[in-house]
Amino acid sequence: EMRTRMFLRTAEFLWQEGHCAHATAEESETRTVQMINLYAQFARDYMAMPVIIGVKTANERFAGALNTYTIEAMMQDGKALQAGTSHNLGQNFAKAFDVTFVNKENKPEYVWANSWGVSTRLMGALIMTHSDDNGLVLPPHLAPIQVVIIPIYKNSEQLAEISARVAPIVSELRALGISVKYDDAENKRPGFKFADYEVKGVPVRLAIGARDIENGTVEVMRRDTLEKHVAPLDGIAEYIKGLLEDIQANILQKAVQYRDSMIRTVDTYDEFKVEIEKGGFILAHWDGTTETEEKVKEETKATIRCIPLDGDKTPGVCMVTGKPSAQRVIFARNY
């Protein structure tokens, strides 16, 4: 990559990429759609990042493909991010590289191919979708450390007492499939540890001192809201398991609410020019021509992110030319 951007366009990057060859056009299209839906499901269920599934325009689709399906996400600064794609390549590449198979009639035939992938730009998407001024906010389903436990003590005797009480809690959490770190490092003060794990986005922090043990309680802090509360030590592992799911759901809900608040509908080009300056997804009619698409891009720096698969399919007239439009498409400025 010549023009780099941290986390999004790096000089070198890792792909999750797949290629399939099929006997029929229908099988290839089915797999192409299946994969974009799988990426959308991963984005929503693990990254807590809502996306819009759609088809790229002829001008934006992968070169040589019959169709490119995309998932488009909305970042907190109002810019769109293409988070994954799936391409139905038809037989174009098979013909170019002479990829054939023997069909049921025992005759050679070109395969119907597709390819699909996501890359490490998803890390950038995760950061820009959820994080705040205090650092990362990681969804529990993806966080490498889901819970951190920090002891509050004045001397080695108190630390030993706390460690003995914490050990079975750590075991219980791990038995529930929860990743947990007990940070009893003596070269860092609790305040430093609090800030450090906040920056790193650990979903749940437990702080426990000698008085907490006496009271049978523990201080719980959730990273998504920065709220603190006291919970009983008895049954804390099961409580944390439920809390992590609540945090996951809350992070997703917050992202959905923000994304939806950034979707607006316009009918005229003058209105579009005003609204695009506010960021977000703009739903507008387009006449289907590359000329109009390029005109909008040149004059507003906005591109058609996709023709959404779901939503309003009502035909109308192009906001620029007044010509017939099959349905509204999604415009945005993007990374």
Rank of each mutant, 00 (worst) to 15 (best):
Q82N: 06
G209S: 07
E105P: 08
A125K: 00
A43K: 00
S119T: 02
A25D: 15
G177L: 04
R44F: 00
S163D: 12
L244R: 06
E186D: 10
V148L: 06
Y258Q: 00
T30E: 14
W15P: 06
D260L: 00
T32S: 03
E238S: 07
P308V: 02
F272T: 11
T225W: 03
R5P: 08
K278S: 07
A40P: 09
L8R: 02
E29W: 10
V320E: 07
M49Q: 00
L283C: 04
T85R: 11
R305Y: 14
V220T: 10
I307D: 06
P108V: 08
R121A: 02
S131Q: 03
V220N: 01
Q327V: 06
N187C: 09
W286H: 11
A185R: 13
M123W: 08
R205W: 07
E299Y: 14
D98N: 11
H229Y: 14
G64Y: 03
L206V: 05
R223K: 14
A332W: 07
D224M: 07
S171C: 09
R9T: 05
G311T: 12
I178A: 06
N215T: 13
E198F: 07
V320L: 11
E161R: 14
I236S: 04
V137Y: 01
T289H: 06
A326S: 14
T217H: 13
F192C: 13
H229M: 13
H229E: 12
S179K: 09
R259K: 13
V274K: 12
Q327Y: 04
V202G: 04
G90L: 06
E186M: 11
L136E: 00
M74E: 00
T321N: 04
V317P: 08
Y153L: 07
G311S: 02
F62S: 13
K323C: 15
K95Y: 05
A125S: 11
A113G: 15
T300H: 01
I263T: 15
T314W: 01
G135H: 08
N215Y: 04
V296E: 04
K188M: 08
D133Q: 11
E277G: 04
M6V: 13
G117M: 06
G191E: 14
A255H: 00
N59D: 05
Y269E: 10
L66P: 09
K79F: 07
Y197E: 04
